[in-house]
């Protein structure tokens, strides 16, 4: 299908990468929703166009964002990203061969931790999960609050909250027991190249601690993402099924809430309906 037919997807902002990466690679061409995007790298800013049509561009959260349609506001916000005591970085921008909707589904799913990320995000001796509580806020964003899962890295149960304000993106709030009310953030923003390919842009915005080594943190997060890439590219169907053909169990409630939310928002691009 053409992305234009899916107004919800068409009229959104999408990241094209971090300005640093774009400059370093001198990237003048990319794709979005099945359309070629030309980038022009100026001294202090980057502009984008599609078939010579200039596109709106803005920089935030360490990425260059654009839209092919008419978004009704700026890209999603995460004000905490700009707090002075945070370590922020783009973990990577990597191409993955499936629908970008699948990575959101992957991020909100804790049941895969012990198997795909053993001894990093989960292990087989601690299989207990507490599914999140789903709600939709006034702005239409889906929230999955207080999902709990064992985290070997800290030897304790971790608590996660997810915000999905665009079909193709998710922000993860990692609860901090030592500073309640403050969170460490991971943002996963898909740049859908077409219905069956996307670039995963992953940002990290954690409260800086003495133990943090920027390079190590980046490497750890990249290996987690590589494990996810392995499984994302091994689905029989590249698009995300919204047709109820999958078999689900109780602990899949977050995954089902996301599918429900996509259906309620009439998202069809990148989905099997």
């Amino acid at each position: 299908m053409s992305a234009r037919e899916d107004a919800v997807v068409w009229n959104r902002w999408y990241p094209l990468g971090s300005p640093t990466d774009i400059r370093r690679r001198n990237a003048t061409r990319t794709r979005l929703l099945g359309h070629d995007i030309d980038l022009e790298i100026h001294k202090t800013w980057i502009s984008a166009s599609s078939d010579s049509r200039p596109l709106p561009v803005t920089e935030r959260l360490g990425y260059v964002w654009t839209s092919l349609g008419k978004p009704d506001g700026p890209p999603q916000q995460l004000l905490e990203y700009y707090e002075v005591d945070r370590l922020v970085m783009n973990i990577w921008s990597t191409p993955i061969k499936c629908s970008g909707l699948r990575i959101v589904d992957n991020v909100i799913d804790n049941a895969h931790f012990p198997f795909l990320h053993p001894n990093i995000l989960g292990d087989e001796n601690h299989l207990d999960l507490v599914p999140g509580e789903a709600s939709v806020d006034a702005a239409g964003a889906l929230w999955l609050k207080s999902q709990k899962a064992w985290l070997p890295l800290t030897n304790s149960v971790a608590e996660y909250t997810y915000r999905i304000s665009d079909p193709y993106s998710v922000v993860l709030f990692i609860h901090r027991p030592t500073t309640p009310g403050r969170y460490d953030y991971l943002g996963i923003f898909a740049q859908p190249l077409d219905e069956e390919n996307f670039i995963a842009h992953k940002l990290l915005a954690w409260i800086r601690e003495d133990w943090m080594d920027e390079r190590q943190l980046k490497a750890d997060q990249q290996s987690i993402s590589a494990q996810d890439k392995y499984v994302l590219e091994r689905h029989v169907h590249k698009k995300l099924p919204l047709n109820g053909a999958e078999t689900s169990i109780e602990v899949d409630s977050s995954s089902l809430s996301y599918r429900e939310w996509l259906r309620a928002n009439h998202v069809t691009y990148g989905a099997m309906t």
Binding site: Y230, V231, R234, H235, V236, H237, E246, T247, I249, S255
Partner: peptide
């Protein structure tokens, strides 16, 4: 070659 759960290839 399809897991009934989330349709990942069983061969993976």
């Amino acid at each position: 070659d399809r897991c009934p759960h989330r349709f990942v290839r069983l061969s993976a």
